[in-house]
Amino acid sequence: MRHVFCVRIGPIGFRVGSDWRAPIDALSDLYRYYPAPNLPDFTVRLEATRPWRRWIRPSIAIAGDYTLPEAAPLPLAQGLLAAEMAMNLQLALGGRRYLLLHASCVERDGQAVLMTGESGAGKSTLATLLAAKGWRFMGDEFALIDPDTGLVHAFPRLISLKNAGIAAALAARPDARFGPLLKDTPKGDIRHMVPDALSVGAMDEPARPALLLYPHYGAASETRGVPASESFVRLTQASTNYVAMGEAGFGALARLVRETPAHAIDYPDGAAAVAQVEALWRTR
């Protein structure tokens, strides 16, 4: 394709081709400290929805190895979002090496905290706040569980901040690099934040899952233990490839919930949540 960018995020390599220069320039800038893959695992294409839509009211169709027929096109101004969505989509639909959990993940001393929940539960924000406290950020979209080792691999792509989360992240990490503010996207206002140097530099180091958390924003602080059986069911829902992975997926998930203590935490604000996580960390 006319414009190309390749990047490796954790163990996953992407090749992004685009009909326009702008999305590629944005990716090259924000991913500038990431390595290039030897062989991309997935190909992403940002194509004009119709030939003339390359110039007239440019409109991006998200395509690649894997495509969702119902995916809505995005305007060129949201090209970075289109690229990020397309990369996630490839991994979600095509990833088979790792069990994929929709979760954010931070690490300390080789041990990882996995946080999963519905959109809006605050898993991205929480991971960002913990990273500001010295935790290594491993990702806010997917946690990659290796069925052979049980270890979680990092996938520290750009952090996709939404609406109120943008200001919270700016306050917590005033030193961080941010992408352009994308207004009025299908998901509201979005701004991408580049993970810190520790996160990118150590992204090839996996960690042992040590805590599974189910955060819930907007209630008084409360923590309760979650039995392995409930964790298992919750995580089958949070996985994009549990069924496709077959027996390996079942084995990986069963091992994860058996070996990793799990808690649901309700929290009223970020500071309280960080305190709750760190308290659980000390007593794990």
């Binding site: 030897n38 062989l39 695992d41 088979r96 090496r97 992975m245 077959g246 390996a248």
Partner: peptide
């Protein structure tokens, strides 16, 4: 084969095996 190619193709074989079983 180059190592990365071999790894990717091993994944593809495993995926096809799962597909066959299903």
């Amino acid at each position: 084969l180059p190592e990365d190619v071999a790894v990717l193709l091993a994944d593809a074989r495993a995926a096809a095996e799962n597909g066959r079983r299903a």
